[in-house]
Protein backbone atom coordinates (compact mmCIF):
# COMPACT_ATOMS: atom_id res chain seq x y z
CA UNK A 1 0.00 0.00 0.00
CA UNK A 2 2.98 2.23 0.41
CA UNK A 3 3.01 3.19 -3.22
CA UNK A 4 -0.68 4.05 -3.26
CA UNK A 5 -0.72 7.77 -3.71
CA UNK A 6 -4.39 8.00 -4.67
CA UNK A 7 -5.61 9.15 -1.22
CA UNK A 8 -3.15 12.01 -1.24
CA UNK A 9 -4.19 13.11 -4.65
CA UNK A 10 -7.85 12.79 -3.77
CA UNK A 11 -7.33 15.02 -0.74
CA UNK A 12 -5.32 17.51 -2.72
CA UNK A 13 -7.75 17.64 -5.62
CA UNK A 14 -10.83 18.08 -3.48
CA UNK A 15 -9.22 20.64 -1.19
CA UNK A 16 -8.18 22.53 -4.30
CA UNK A 17 -11.76 22.35 -5.46
CA UNK A 18 -12.86 23.71 -2.10
CA UNK A 19 -10.57 26.72 -2.50
CA UNK A 20 -11.63 27.21 -6.11
CA UNK A 21 -15.23 27.08 -4.94
CA UNK A 22 -14.75 30.32 -3.05
CA UNK A 23 -13.83 32.23 -6.19
CA UNK A 24 -16.08 30.86 -8.91
CA UNK A 25 -19.57 32.15 -9.66
CA UNK A 26 -22.53 30.77 -7.82
CA UNK A 27 -24.04 28.88 -10.76
CA UNK A 28 -20.83 26.91 -11.20
CA UNK A 29 -20.69 26.14 -7.48
CA UNK A 30 -24.19 24.73 -7.80
CA UNK A 31 -23.14 22.66 -10.78
CA UNK A 32 -20.19 21.27 -8.80
CA UNK A 33 -22.38 20.49 -5.80
CA UNK A 34 -24.92 18.62 -7.89
CA UNK A 35 -22.13 16.77 -9.70
CA UNK A 36 -20.68 15.63 -6.39
CA UNK A 37 -24.09 14.56 -5.14
CA UNK A 38 -24.68 12.52 -8.27
CA UNK A 39 -21.10 11.31 -8.15
CA UNK A 40 -21.75 9.83 -4.70
CA UNK A 41 -24.76 7.92 -5.98
CA UNK A 42 -22.73 6.64 -8.89
CA UNK A 43 -19.89 5.68 -6.56
CA UNK A 44 -22.29 3.26 -4.92
CA UNK A 45 -23.46 2.12 -8.30
CA UNK A 46 -19.97 1.28 -9.52
CA UNK A 47 -19.46 -0.71 -6.34
CA UNK A 48 -22.33 -2.88 -7.55
CA UNK A 49 -21.17 -2.77 -11.15
CA UNK A 50 -17.76 -4.11 -10.21
CA UNK A 51 -19.70 -7.07 -8.88
CA UNK A 52 -21.47 -7.42 -12.21
CA UNK A 53 -24.77 -6.05 -10.95
CA UNK A 54 -26.41 -2.96 -12.37
CA UNK A 55 -29.07 -1.28 -10.35
CA UNK A 56 -31.65 0.65 -12.32
CA UNK A 57 -33.18 1.74 -9.06
CA UNK A 58 -30.61 3.81 -7.17
CA UNK A 59 -33.19 6.58 -7.51
CA UNK A 60 -35.01 4.82 -4.66
CA UNK A 61 -32.35 5.82 -2.12
CA UNK A 62 -31.52 9.09 -3.86
CA UNK A 63 -35.14 10.07 -3.43
CA UNK A 64 -35.34 8.64 0.07
CA UNK A 65 -32.37 10.78 1.13
CA UNK A 66 -33.91 13.88 -0.40
CA UNK A 67 -37.31 13.30 1.17
CA UNK A 68 -35.86 12.56 4.62
CA UNK A 69 -34.12 15.94 4.48
CA UNK A 70 -37.32 17.59 3.30
CA UNK A 71 -39.67 15.94 5.75
CA UNK A 72 -37.45 16.41 8.78
CA UNK A 73 -37.10 20.11 7.98
CA UNK A 74 -40.70 20.77 7.04
CA UNK A 75 -42.65 18.47 9.29
CA UNK A 76 -40.44 17.59 12.23
CA UNK A 77 -38.62 20.91 12.48
CA UNK A 78 -35.17 19.32 12.29
CA UNK A 79 -32.92 21.44 10.10
CA UNK A 80 -29.54 20.59 11.57
CA UNK A 81 -27.53 19.02 8.81
CA UNK A 82 -25.59 16.66 11.08
CA UNK A 83 -28.75 15.27 12.64
CA UNK A 84 -30.61 15.10 9.34
CA UNK A 85 -27.79 13.24 7.65
CA UNK A 86 -27.72 10.78 10.49
CA UNK A 87 -31.41 10.16 9.93
CA UNK A 88 -30.73 9.74 6.22
CA UNK A 89 -28.10 7.09 6.89
CA UNK A 90 -30.40 5.26 9.30
CA UNK A 91 -33.33 5.28 6.90
CA UNK A 92 -31.26 4.13 3.95
CA UNK A 93 -29.61 1.37 5.95
CA UNK A 94 -32.94 0.18 7.28
CA UNK A 95 -34.69 0.06 3.93
CA UNK A 96 -31.76 -1.41 2.03
CA UNK A 97 -31.12 -4.10 4.61
CA UNK A 98 -34.70 -5.27 4.17
CA UNK A 99 -34.82 -5.07 0.37
CA UNK A 100 -31.28 -6.43 0.14
CA UNK A 101 -32.43 -9.73 1.62
CA UNK A 102 -34.56 -10.26 -1.45
CA UNK A 103 -32.37 -8.57 -4.01
CA UNK A 104 -29.15 -10.39 -3.24
CA UNK A 105 -30.69 -13.49 -4.85
CA UNK A 106 -31.02 -11.81 -8.23
CA UNK A 107 -28.49 -11.29 -11.00
CA UNK A 108 -28.18 -9.55 -14.32
CA UNK A 109 -31.21 -7.96 -15.88
CA UNK A 110 -33.50 -9.30 -13.17
CA UNK A 111 -31.59 -7.45 -10.50
CA UNK A 112 -31.84 -4.33 -12.65
CA UNK A 113 -35.57 -4.68 -13.24
CA UNK A 114 -36.41 -5.55 -9.65
CA UNK A 115 -34.45 -2.60 -8.27
CA UNK A 116 -36.28 -0.44 -10.77
CA UNK A 117 -39.62 -1.86 -9.67
CA UNK A 118 -38.93 -0.92 -6.04
CA UNK A 119 -37.86 2.54 -7.02
CA UNK A 120 -41.02 3.00 -9.10
CA UNK A 121 -43.13 1.79 -6.19
CA UNK A 122 -41.67 4.58 -4.04
CA UNK A 123 -42.37 6.96 -6.92
CA UNK A 124 -45.96 5.79 -6.98
CA UNK A 125 -46.36 6.22 -3.23
CA UNK A 126 -44.97 9.74 -3.35
CA UNK A 127 -47.16 10.68 -6.31
CA UNK A 128 -50.13 9.55 -4.23
CA UNK A 129 -49.01 11.45 -1.12
CA UNK A 130 -50.87 14.73 -1.44
CA UNK A 131 -49.59 15.80 1.99
CA UNK A 132 -46.11 15.80 0.48
CA UNK A 133 -47.17 17.78 -2.55
CA UNK A 134 -47.53 14.81 -4.90
CA UNK A 135 -45.54 15.36 -8.11
CA UNK A 136 -45.03 19.05 -7.32
CA UNK A 137 -42.88 18.13 -4.34
CA UNK A 138 -42.19 20.74 -1.71
CA UNK A 139 -39.66 23.36 -0.68
CA UNK A 140 -37.04 22.44 1.90
CA UNK A 141 -36.46 24.52 4.99
CA UNK A 142 -33.09 26.27 5.13
CA UNK A 143 -30.46 23.97 6.59
CA UNK A 144 -28.46 24.81 9.71
CA UNK A 145 -25.31 23.35 11.21
CA UNK A 146 -25.02 22.90 14.97
CA UNK A 147 -27.43 25.75 15.51
CA UNK A 148 -25.63 28.07 13.10
CA UNK A 149 -27.78 29.48 10.33
CA UNK A 150 -25.77 30.78 7.41
CA UNK A 151 -26.93 33.72 5.34
CA UNK A 152 -29.20 32.86 2.42
CA UNK A 153 -26.67 34.29 -0.03
CA UNK A 154 -23.83 32.19 1.39
CA UNK A 155 -25.80 28.96 1.53
CA UNK A 156 -24.59 27.81 -1.87
CA UNK A 157 -20.97 27.99 -0.76
CA UNK A 158 -21.26 26.23 2.55
CA UNK A 159 -23.42 23.46 1.10
CA UNK A 160 -20.70 23.09 -1.50
CA UNK A 161 -18.08 22.82 1.27
CA UNK A 162 -20.22 20.23 3.01
CA UNK A 163 -20.53 18.26 -0.20
CA UNK A 164 -16.77 18.37 -0.74
CA UNK A 165 -16.08 17.02 2.73
CA UNK A 166 -18.65 14.24 2.49
CA UNK A 167 -17.42 13.31 -0.95
CA UNK A 168 -13.82 13.25 0.22
CA UNK A 169 -14.60 10.94 3.13
CA UNK A 170 -16.72 8.71 0.92
CA UNK A 171 -14.02 8.50 -1.74
CA UNK A 172 -11.29 7.63 0.76
CA UNK A 173 -13.38 4.97 2.44
CA UNK A 174 -14.43 3.47 -0.84
CA UNK A 175 -10.89 3.54 -2.14
CA UNK A 176 -9.75 1.51 0.82
CA UNK A 177 -12.72 -0.78 0.43
CA UNK A 178 -12.03 -1.41 -3.25
CA UNK A 179 -8.56 -2.56 -2.30
CA UNK A 180 -9.67 -4.77 0.56
CA UNK A 181 -10.30 -8.51 0.08
CA UNK A 182 -14.01 -7.80 0.23
CA UNK A 183 -13.66 -5.20 -2.49
CA UNK A 184 -11.83 -7.60 -4.77
CA UNK A 185 -14.45 -10.20 -3.90
CA UNK A 186 -16.85 -8.21 -6.05
CA UNK A 187 -14.81 -8.68 -9.18
CA UNK A 188 -14.45 -12.35 -8.36
CA UNK A 189 -18.23 -12.69 -8.23
CA UNK A 190 -18.56 -10.92 -11.55
CA UNK A 191 -16.05 -13.26 -13.15
CA UNK A 192 -17.35 -16.49 -11.70
CA UNK A 193 -19.74 -16.70 -8.82
CA UNK A 194 -19.63 -20.43 -8.43
CA UNK A 195 -15.89 -20.50 -7.92
CA UNK A 196 -16.27 -17.85 -5.24
CA UNK A 197 -18.71 -20.13 -3.49
CA UNK A 198 -16.25 -23.02 -3.72
CA UNK A 199 -13.69 -20.82 -2.03
CA UNK A 200 -15.97 -20.66 0.97
CA UNK A 201 -17.13 -17.08 0.52
CA UNK A 202 -20.83 -16.33 0.38
CA UNK A 203 -21.52 -14.21 -2.69
CA UNK A 204 -24.96 -13.32 -1.39
CA UNK A 205 -23.52 -11.91 1.81
CA UNK A 206 -20.99 -9.87 -0.12
CA UNK A 207 -23.63 -8.55 -2.47
CA UNK A 208 -25.90 -7.78 0.43
CA UNK A 209 -23.25 -5.64 2.11
CA UNK A 210 -22.40 -3.88 -1.14
CA UNK A 211 -26.05 -3.17 -1.77
CA UNK A 212 -26.44 -1.55 1.65
CA UNK A 213 -23.30 0.54 1.18
CA UNK A 214 -24.47 1.66 -2.26
CA UNK A 215 -27.84 2.59 -0.80
CA UNK A 216 -26.26 4.76 1.89
CA UNK A 217 -24.10 6.54 -0.67
CA UNK A 218 -27.13 7.15 -2.89
CA UNK A 219 -29.07 8.53 0.06
CA UNK A 220 -26.21 10.92 0.81
CA UNK A 221 -26.29 12.07 -2.79
CA UNK A 222 -30.03 12.66 -2.58
CA UNK A 223 -29.69 14.54 0.69
CA UNK A 224 -27.02 16.86 -0.73
CA UNK A 225 -29.07 17.47 -3.88
CA UNK A 226 -32.10 18.31 -1.76
CA UNK A 227 -30.21 20.74 0.46
CA UNK A 228 -28.56 22.39 -2.55
CA UNK A 229 -31.62 22.64 -4.79
CA UNK A 230 -33.94 23.53 -1.93
CA UNK A 231 -36.72 21.41 -3.32
CA UNK A 232 -37.61 17.74 -3.67
CA UNK A 233 -40.06 15.98 -5.93
CA UNK A 234 -40.84 12.33 -6.77
CA UNK A 235 -38.96 12.65 -10.06
CA UNK A 236 -35.90 11.67 -7.98
CA UNK A 237 -37.22 8.11 -7.80
CA UNK A 238 -38.34 7.95 -11.42
CA UNK A 239 -36.63 5.38 -13.61
CA UNK A 240 -35.09 8.03 -15.84
CA UNK A 241 -33.16 9.42 -12.86
CA UNK A 242 -31.77 5.98 -12.07
CA UNK A 243 -30.98 5.55 -15.74
CA UNK A 244 -28.97 8.74 -15.69
CA UNK A 245 -26.83 7.34 -12.87
CA UNK A 246 -26.04 4.29 -14.95
CA UNK A 247 -25.24 6.60 -17.84
CA UNK A 248 -22.78 8.53 -15.64
CA UNK A 249 -21.23 5.33 -14.33
CA UNK A 250 -20.51 4.11 -17.83
CA UNK A 251 -19.20 7.48 -18.85
CA UNK A 252 -16.74 7.64 -15.99
CA UNK A 253 -15.93 3.96 -15.97
CA UNK A 254 -15.62 1.69 -12.96
CA UNK A 255 -11.85 1.62 -12.68
CA UNK A 256 -11.28 4.39 -10.20
CA UNK A 257 -13.19 5.86 -7.27
CA UNK A 258 -12.93 9.39 -8.65
CA UNK A 259 -14.36 8.37 -12.02
CA UNK A 260 -18.01 8.95 -11.02
CA UNK A 261 -17.25 12.53 -10.04
CA UNK A 262 -15.64 13.31 -13.35
CA UNK A 263 -18.43 11.53 -15.19
CA UNK A 264 -21.15 13.38 -13.30
CA UNK A 265 -19.50 16.73 -13.88
CA UNK A 266 -19.05 16.00 -17.55
CA UNK A 267 -22.72 15.08 -17.97
CA UNK A 268 -23.88 18.23 -16.25
CA UNK A 269 -21.61 20.32 -18.47
CA UNK A 270 -22.63 18.54 -21.67
CA UNK A 271 -26.25 18.96 -20.83
CA UNK A 272 -25.95 22.59 -19.83
CA UNK A 273 -24.08 23.41 -23.01
CA UNK A 274 -26.46 21.37 -25.15
CA UNK A 275 -29.48 23.12 -23.62
CA UNK A 276 -27.76 26.41 -24.19
CA UNK A 277 -26.62 25.93 -27.76
CA UNK A 278 -29.50 23.87 -29.07
CA UNK A 279 -32.65 24.27 -26.97
CA UNK A 280 -34.57 22.30 -29.59
CA UNK A 281 -32.22 19.41 -30.24
CA UNK A 282 -30.27 18.97 -27.01
CA UNK A 283 -31.46 15.40 -26.59
CA UNK A 284 -29.84 14.53 -29.88
CA UNK A 285 -26.52 15.98 -28.73
CA UNK A 286 -26.78 14.10 -25.45
CA UNK A 287 -27.64 10.83 -27.18
CA UNK A 288 -24.91 11.34 -29.76
CA UNK A 289 -22.22 11.96 -27.16
CA UNK A 290 -23.39 8.90 -25.26
CA UNK A 291 -22.95 6.74 -28.36
CA UNK A 292 -19.55 8.24 -29.14
CA UNK A 293 -18.31 7.65 -25.60
CA UNK A 294 -19.50 4.06 -25.56
CA UNK A 295 -17.98 3.46 -28.96
CA UNK A 296 -14.60 5.08 -28.50
CA UNK A 297 -14.12 4.76 -24.73
CA UNK A 298 -15.52 1.36 -23.83
CA UNK A 299 -14.19 1.55 -20.29
CA UNK A 300 -15.26 5.11 -19.67
CA UNK A 301 -13.20 8.25 -19.49
CA UNK A 302 -10.68 6.45 -17.35
CA UNK A 303 -9.57 4.43 -20.34
CA UNK A 304 -8.02 7.62 -21.67
CA UNK A 305 -5.36 7.28 -19.00
CA UNK A 306 -2.29 5.08 -19.32
CA UNK A 307 -3.11 1.49 -18.42
CA UNK A 308 -1.80 -0.03 -15.28
CA UNK A 309 -0.71 -3.57 -15.10
CA UNK A 310 -2.70 -4.51 -12.03
CA UNK A 311 -5.93 -3.43 -13.59
CA UNK A 312 -5.24 -5.14 -16.84
CA UNK A 313 -4.60 -8.33 -14.94
CA UNK A 314 -8.10 -8.43 -13.54
Amino acid sequence: MGSDRTPIFLCAALLLLLVVGLFIPNWLVFLFTISMAKGLVVLGLILLMRTGLVSFGQGLYYCLGGYIVGISGQHWGITDVALVFLLVVLAATLLSSILGLLLCRYREIFFAMLTMAFSMILYGILVKSEKLGSTDGFIIAQATLFGWQPEVEASGTWIFALAVIITLVALLVMHLYFRSPMGFGGEAIRENEIRVEYLGVSPRRLIYIKYVVAAVLAAFGGAITAVAAGHVDPEMAFWATSGEFVFIALLGGTLHVAAPLVGAFLIEIIRTIALDLAPYTWQMILGGSLLLIIFFLPKGLWSLLPKRREEEGL
Binding site: A13, V262, R308, E310
Partner: peptide
Protein backbone atom coordinates in the same frame (compact mmCIF):
# COMPACT_ATOMS: atom_id res chain seq x y z
CA UNK B 1 1.05 -4.32 -5.73
CA UNK B 2 4.77 -4.56 -6.07
CA UNK B 3 4.63 -4.31 -9.83
CA UNK B 4 3.15 -0.88 -9.81
CA UNK B 5 6.26 1.16 -9.43
CA UNK B 6 7.74 0.31 -12.77
CA UNK B 7 4.58 1.17 -14.64
CA UNK B 8 4.34 4.61 -16.19
CA UNK B 9 2.41 6.17 -13.43
CA UNK B 10 1.15 9.65 -13.28
CA UNK B 11 -1.86 9.88 -11.12
CA UNK B 12 -5.29 9.70 -12.68
CA UNK B 13 -6.44 12.31 -10.26
CA UNK B 14 -3.85 14.74 -11.57
CA UNK B 15 -5.08 14.18 -15.05
CA UNK B 16 -8.66 14.36 -13.93
CA UNK B 17 -8.05 17.70 -12.30
CA UNK B 18 -6.36 18.91 -15.42
CA UNK B 19 -9.24 17.75 -17.56
CA UNK B 20 -11.78 19.35 -15.24
CA UNK B 21 -9.99 22.64 -15.65
CA UNK B 22 -9.94 22.22 -19.43
CA UNK B 23 -13.61 21.33 -19.53
CA UNK B 24 -14.49 24.23 -17.36
CA UNK B 25 -12.70 26.65 -19.61
CA UNK B 26 -14.33 25.01 -22.57
CA UNK B 27 -17.72 25.33 -20.95
CA UNK B 28 -17.19 28.97 -20.23
CA UNK B 29 -15.93 29.72 -23.71
CA UNK B 30 -18.57 27.71 -25.51
Amino acid sequence: MAGRKNVRNYSPVQLATASIVCLLTAALCL
